[in-house]
Design a binder for these strands. Structure first.
Length: 364
DNA sequence: AACTCACGCAACCGCCAAGAT
DNA sequence: AATCTTGGCGGTTGCGTGAGT
C-alpha cells in the first residue's frame, strides 16, 4: 500500500533528473505519447518508475509550461482561488495556464503565506488573524464545554484548517450579497482582471474575490473552463483537471458559473436568521478584506529572486520549440504567450541554464 | 574566505479513488 | 465481491544556492 510496486521491485533511480533522462523522456512522449505511465520508463529506456516519469513530465518537461516568476496578477489570482478552493492545488493550477500545482504549492508555502501573515491575514482562512484567534478561542471554549459532556468529540480540530473554514461558513449566503462588492477592476490596485486572458472561460475573479469567504457549506466551487487544449504535442496525453462542479447539498446540477461566470446557487432556506447576524459580525472583516485586497500581494521582483540568475538547459530549447509549434494551433496558448512580459520571458529558462551549466561544468 | 542560515525548488511519500482483473 | 493496478493529489523532505556574518 502506498508505495507503488514498481518503486521497490526494481532498482530504480531516484533524485534529480539528468539532462539525458529528460531528453529520453521528452523524446519518447513527443513521439509516442505517454500512454500507460507504468510502461513509459521501459519504453523510454529509463530506470525510473512511471510515477516519477509522470511527475517529471507534468512539472518540468510539458511543453505548455509557462515557467519564470509569477506575476503579481497570478499571485493575486492564487490568493483568491485559495480562498475559495483551499489547498486544492491542482484545481488552482487549472486556472493558471502553464503553471503546475507543485509550482503553485511551493509559491504558496514559501512566499504568499508569509506575505499574508505579515499583513495580518490568516493564510488558511483568509480572515484577519485577530478574528481567527477570537474564533479559535470561542471554538476551544465550546469544545471544552462539549468535551465535558462528550469526551469522544470528533470535531476538535483547529479552526484554522481549511475544512473548518468552510464549515464555519453560513449555509445561506444570500444576505452576503448585501456587502458592497469590491470592484477589483477599478482603483483598488488588484490587477487580476486587467488581463482578461488570465482567466480562462467565464471565470470572474472579481466576483470570486468578493465572495471569498462566502462560499457556502458543502459547495465545491470552481470555474467553468473551456476544453483544455494545452496538452502535450502528441495529443490528449496530459490531463489537466477538468472541473465539473456541482452544488452538493442538493441535487441541483446547474452549473455555478453559467451566465455571469460565477453565479451562486439558490440559497438554502431556513437559515437566514443566523446569517443576518453573521453579516453584521463580518462588516469589520469586510473592511479589512477590502484593505487586504487593495494591496497587491506580491512585489513581483521579490518573488523567486533566485531566478535572477539566468541559466538555461538544452532540453528546454527543444521544449520551447514544441511549445511554439503547439501554440500555433492553440489560440489560448497564443494569447498566453503574448501576455508574457519581456521580464518574464527573460526568466523563462533560468533554471534550465543553471542545470546545463552544472551538467557540463561550464559557466556562461 | 569560511561558515551559517534561510529560502526556493524538485522530487518523493503516502494516501485515495477508479478501473481492471 | 475482493484484490490489484494505476493515475492523481496534497503534504513533506532534502538539496542547492544566495545572503549575511
Amino acid at each position: 500500500m502506498g508505495r507503488h510496486s514498481c518503486c521497490y521491485k526494481q532498482k530504480l533511480r531516484k533524485g534529480l533528473w539528468s539532462p539525458e533522462e529528460d531528453e529520453k523522456l521528452l523524446n519518447h512522449i513527443t513521439n509516442h505519447g505517454h500512454g500507460c505511465w507504468s510502461s513509459v520508463p521501459k519504453l523510454a529506456g529509463l530506470q525510473r518508475c512511471g510515477k516519477s516519469c509522470r511527475l517529471r513530465w507534468i512539472n518540468y518537461l510539458r511543453p505548455d509550461l509557462k515557467r519564470g516568476a509569477f506575476s503579481p496578477e497570478e499571485e493575486n489570482l492564487i490568493v483568491e482561488l485559495h480562498a475559495a478552493l483551499g489547498n486544492r492545488w491542482s484545481q488552482i493550477a487549472a486556472r493558471l495556464p502553464g503553471r503546475t500545482d507543485n509550482e503553485i504549492k511551493n509559491l504558496w508555502n514559501s512566499s504568499i503565506k508569509k506575505k499574508l501573515k505579515q499583513r495580518g491575514i490568516d493564510p488558511n482562512t483568509h480572515k484577519p488573524i485577530t478574528e481567527v484567534e477570537s474564533l479559535e478561542k470561542t471554538i476551544t471554549t465550546s469544545n471544552n464545554k462539549r468535551s465535558n459532556n462528550d469526551h469522544k468529540s470528533p470535531n476538535s480540530s483547529s479552526a484554522t484548517t481549511n475544512q473548518d473554514f468552510y464549515f464555519e461558513r453560513p449555509s445561506d449566503f444570500s444576505e452576503y450579497f448585501l456587502f458592497p462588492k469590491p470592484n477589483y477592476n477599478s482603483n483598488l490596485g488588484l490587477s487580476v482582471t486587467s488581463d482578461p486572458s488570465m482567466i480562462p472561460g467565464q471565470f470572474s475573479p472579481g466576483i470570486m474575490a468578493g465572495s471569498v469567504y462566502q462560499t457556502p457549506v458543502c459547495v465545491k466551487p470552481s470555474i467553468n473552463l473551456p476544453p483544455d487544449n494545452s496538452s502535450s504535442p502528441g495529443g490528449d496525453h496530459v490531463k489537466l483537471a477538468a472541473p465539473n462542479w456541482e452544488f452538493q447539498t442538493n441535487n441541483n446540477t446547474s452549473n455555478f458559473f453559467d451566465n455571469c461566470g460565477f453565479s451562486w446557487p439558490t440559497p438554502i432556506p431556513n437559515s437566514t436568521s443566523s446569517s443576518s447576524s453573521l453579516v453584521k459580525a463580518n462588516h469589520n472583516f469586510e473592511d479589512k478584506w477590502l484593505e487586504y485586497m487593495n494591496t497587491p500581494i506580491s512585489n513581483g521582483s521579490t518573488v523567486q529572486s533566485h531566478q535572477s540568475s539566468q541559466q538555461q538547459h538544452y532540453i528546454k530549447s527543444e521544449t520551447e520549440y514544441l511549445a511554439t509549434v503547439s501554440n500555433m494551433n492553440d489560440p489560448w496558448n497564443q494569447s498566453q504567450n503574448e501576455n508574457l512580459g519581456t521580464t518574464e520571458a527573460s526568466d523563462v529558462f533560468s533554471k534550465d541554464l543553471q542545470r546545463m551549466a552544472v551538467s557540463f561544468g561550464q559557466s556562461f
